[in-house]
Amino acid sequence: MMFDDSLARIRDLKFKQLLVFERVATLGSMHKAAEAVHMTQPNVVKIVRQLEDLLGVTLFERHSKGVRLTVFAEHLLERIRPMLGDARAMSEELTALRGGEGGLVAIGTLISASAWLLPESVALMKQRHPKVGLAIQEATNDILYPMLQVGELDVIVGRLPENPGEGVEMHAIYQDELMIVARAKHPLSRQPTCTVEDVLGYPWIVPSNASPVRRQVEQFFVSRGLDIPANQIVSLSMLTNLGILARSDALAMLPSVAARPLIQVGVLFEVPIHVRLPFGTIGYSVRAGRQLVPAAATFVDVLKEVGTRA
């Protein structure tokens, strides 16, 4: 009898309920979920309550900053994420079949890829496959990888993390390093060579504490017995960083593949300190054990082709 009751509940589940639940669970907020699914917050609350009544459990504990998942919500989220990802993939495959060559590739990117690898790949992809849509979202790993796991993203392009989480498959493309750069007419550009002490008196653009690159930047100074520069600008935005470098005497450590083209055209120069730091492996991540939709598979091929130029 209990088994029959469980089947009845499953039959009464609606796809919209699961989609709304997943957004609330992932974003941790009814308000943010409402924005993500283009609904009003009262409607999102109503749908969550309907789902809780149907399942006979409490899914979220409300608090001042949003919601907290109960053990029931954690188990439900684990079950439905692959299903929602498969539903989106099925939609993209049907779209591609209807229109010949088409579909949409959802791409997540990190700062390490947004300046060179991804723009080059997107340009080549649109040149060869103009009917394929590309939706790009730049964020940090803690945001992008859960989106990949649930199928909201097809691929993440950037520096490969040490621990991407379960259900993720990573593929290396090339190794990169960090170089110290400044604007082309920076005062240090008049010196044939620099010491580490020479760079301490200038503002430094550094990544946030959440970025693994931050540790490398700090280690650069600590390993030489020096204090970390106190004059810091904390930023993960490549566009903002380039704007600051162009308008000030600030210094920054940038991935060499992103910095070299700007050095070649005279926008930046490499500070002649003759020190390079390993940046890490640049590549792409996809869901493990899941076949990419045709458009995403084509984009990955383009990505690897462009990566060989690095």
Rank of each mutant, 00 (worst) to 15 (best):
R62P: 01
Q264S: 08
S285W: 04
Q137P: 09
L97F: 12
E218A: 02
L117A: 11
T140S: 14
E93L: 13
Q41V: 13
Q137K: 12
V48W: 07
R287S: 07
Q41K: 14
Y284V: 07
V275W: 08
M125Q: 00
D86Y: 08
P164D: 03
V265H: 06
S235T: 06
V257G: 06
R214T: 01
A73I: 08
N141I: 06
L134N: 08
L18A: 03
L245P: 06
G100L: 12
I180L: 15
I263S: 05
V196D: 01
R215V: 12
V213R: 07
M1L: 13
M125N: 10
S237N: 10
V157P: 03
D5T: 14
F72E: 15
I111L: 02
G167M: 10
E61N: 15
F221G: 03
G158M: 04
N241W: 00
R79V: 14
L19E: 13
V24T: 09
P203T: 04
Q216A: 12
I80P: 00
E152N: 12
S121Y: 02
P130S: 01
V37S: 00
A33V: 06
V122I: 15
A210V: 15
F15M: 12
L84N: 02
E92A: 08
F220A: 11
V286Q: 01
M2Y: 13
L19I: 14
L59R: 09
L144I: 07
V306H: 03
I80N: 08
E61I: 13
R68Q: 12
F221S: 04
K46E: 12
A310G: 06
V271P: 05
F279L: 15
V293E: 02
N43P: 04
V71S: 15
G225I: 07
P42G: 10
D227K: 13
T193V: 14
P187S: 07
R79L: 15
R247E: 08
L277S: 09
I205S: 00
R98G: 00
K32C: 07
R287K: 05
L27H: 12
K65T: 14
A106M: 03
D301H: 11
E101Q: 10
P261N: 04
V168W: 05
M238R: 05
G266M: 08
R79Y: 11
V206C: 02
